[in-house]
Design a protein around this nucleic acid. Structure first.
Lengths: 101, 101
DNA sequence: CATATATTTCTACATTTCTAGAAATCTCGA
DNA sequence: TCGAGATTTCTAGAAATGTAGAAATATATG
C-alpha cells in the first residue's frame, strides 16, 4: 500500500462525521445500509451525507450498489485491513532507512 | 478509545507529511530521532515541521524529550496500538446497534 | 560573553474542507 | 406519464489547514 493511499484513507476517517458513517457501515456488516438508513440513524442532512460518502468512496473505504431506488453502502473490509497492515507493518523496525517514498 | 480521540489520531495521520514523519519515527523505534534528524531526512522546512509535530503531539501519537540542544521525538507505540485496535474492534460485528455516540 | 547549532514563533496566504438549504435528478410503481 | 420517495447537484460562506520565510528564542561550547 502506498503512502498516498494510506494518507487518503486515514484522512477520510479523520473527520468525526465520516468516521461515524464508516463505523456504522462496519457494524452493518456485509448487508450494508442504504444512504437513507445512514441519514436517519446519524441525523445527517442528505447533501452533507452525500459529500462525505463521496470522500469515503474516493478513499476506497466503502462501495455502493444500487438496489432499486435505494443505494446500498458497504464498508470495504479489505481496504480497512490493508490500512491496519500499513500502520503496523514497520513497527519497531529500528532501521535507519530513509522514508523518501 | 473514544470516537473523538480516534478521529483526532486518524486526522493527524491523514496528511501525507505527518504520516511520513510518524512512519519515520516508528521505524526509528524507541531511540527516536531529533527534530533536525527528521528535517534533514524528509527535507521539510523547520517551521513546517514544528507545525506538524505539534499536531502529532496533540493527537498523542508522538512524544518529545529534550537531550541537550536537541529535542528527541519518539512514536508512542501504545497510542498506535490503541488506534489499530479501534479500527479492528468493530470489524464484521454485523450488529444493528446505533452509532450515535 | 560570543558564537554556532537547534528549534520555535510570528506572520501571511492559498487552498481545502465542512456544513447545509434549495432545487434538480433518478427510480419505481400505478 | 405521473407521483412519491431516494439521492445528488448547486451554491455559498465560515472555518480549518498546509506551507514556509524571517525573526526570535533556547542550548551548548569556547
Amino acid at each position: 500500500m502506498q503512502l498516498q493511499t494510506a494518507a487518503n484513507r486515514l484522512d477520510a476517517l479523520g473527520a468525526p462525521t465520516r468516521l461515524r458513517i464508516f463505523r456504522l457501515l462496519v457494524r452493518a456488516g456485509t448487508d450494508g445500509l442504504p444512504v437513507g438508513g445512514i441519514q436517519s440513524r446519524l441525523s445527517i442532512p442528505g447533501s452533507t451525507l452525500t459529500h462525505h460518502l463521496r470522500g469515503l468512496i474516493a478513499a476506497g473505504l466503502i462501495e455502493q450498489e444500487r438496489q432499486g431506488a435505494m443505494l446500498v453502502c458497504r464498508a470495504d473490509f479489505r481496504a480497512m485491513d490493508e490500512l491496519v497492515d500499513y500502520l503496523t507493518a514497520e513497527c519497531c523496525a529500528e532501521q535507519q532507512k530513509d522514508d523518501a517514498a
